[in-house]
């Protein structure tokens, strides 16, 4: 039935309108939107902005970098092997004569793909795991958490190498390894959030209007617990690249001659003794810059999402 129409009929003088006015004006200040506030907080944090800017540059490099180079990233050219940086080869060439800059540009694509897919996969899998574990609690929670414990008992690089060795080295398997190694962190993060959130009044209130378990979990609890997940993801992107590079360096990730930062360092390292510093230095520099900027961005996000600093 229509309450509104009925009420007006019952009470045509509507004294309520005057009563409501103070409340109305009080709340008007807040309608600027949460986005404005978010950006304001974010701009205040200079380091995070620097990190974000760098990250953006690296992404841009991966996207449009090939426009600036005419070399083939995987085709050896023995005539121009081991050249020092010059105008023709901005970052020199490696022992097989492949242009380092070109390879770095294409490696950026590979590494960004790995990082994004790995973090996305781990965050999604971990969040679902955490929500279910925390929401149902009791025995299920216990079993699921102990399973995570045993997974995390391995040093992550060892676990990663073991899985990669079993599955075989490939781009897809590197992503799988990173997801497996990373998701427990997200699961714990989300679980701890849900454990406190599920006692909140709005969960009871959501039930009182007829939400079922699934909706409570995925529409009410999960979205409210994602703040820390965003922060963790951003920090995790850098770490994932580092891990992927390590695996490739050790020969269980991306395989040469595919361009990838870890592979390039591995190849370049052999050249170091002959004084050819550039073939390992530049990919190393990119890893360093990437991980650093991802961490700065993550720290900035943490400030934005951490309610204690608001």
């Amino acid at each position: 039935m229509n309450i509104g129409r009925k009420r007006r009929a019952a009470d045509p003088t509507r004294p309520a309108d005057t009563r409501c006015r103070p409340e109305k004006s009080a709340a008007e200040g807040g309608t600027g939107g949460s986005w404005g506030f978010f950006l304001y907080r974010f701009r205040r944090n200079k380091l995070a902005a620097v990190g974000g800017g760098f990250l953006l540059l690296i992404v841009l490099l991966g996207l449009i970098g090939p426009l600036f180079t005419s070399y083939n990233p995987t085709k050896p050219d023995m005539k121009s092997a081991s050249l020092a940086p010059s105008f023709a080869h901005w970052m020199g060439t490696d022992a097989l004569g492949m242009d380092i800059f070109t390879r770095i540009v294409y490696a950026t694509r590979t590494d960004l793909l790995i990082a994004v897919m790995a973090v996305l996969g781990a965050a999604i899998l971990g969040s679902l795991y955490g929500v279910i574990s925390a929401f149902y609690g009791r025995v299920l929670d216990e079993v699921m958490m102990r399973a995570l414990d045993s997974l995390q008992a391995f040093p992550s690089i060892l676990l990663g190498l073991a899985i990669a060795a079993a599955l075989g080295p490939s781009l897809r398997n590197v992503i799988i390894v990173l997801v497996v190694v990373n998701f427990p962190m997200y699961a714990r993060l989300v679980r701890s959030q849900i454990l406190s959130l599920k006692e909140a009044t709005f969960v009871d209130a959501a039930r009182t209007v007829g939400n079922n378990n699934a909706r409570i979990m995925f529409r009410h609890l999960l979205p409210n617990s994602l703040g820390p997940v965003y922060v963790q993801s951003s920090l995790n992107v850098g770490w994932s690249v580092l891990m992927a590079a390590s695996m490739s360096f050790l020969g269980l990730g991306i395989q040469a001659p595919e361009p990838e930062w870890g592979v390039m360092i591995s190849q370049g390292a052999r050249q170091m003794v002959q004084g050819e510093w550039w073939s390992a230095f530049f990919p190393g520099l990119f890893i360093f810059l990437f991980v650093l900027s991802a961490s700065l961005l993550g720290d900035g996000l943490q400030d934005v999402f951490d309610p204690r600093r608001r």
Binding site: G4, R5, K6, R7, A16, D17, R19, C20
Partner: peptide, 11 residues
């Protein structure tokens, strides 16, 4: 809208 008016919510 009708409900919010019924609970005398301004605007």
């Amino acid at each position: 809208l009708a409900l919010l008016e019924a609970v005398r919510m301004g605007g």
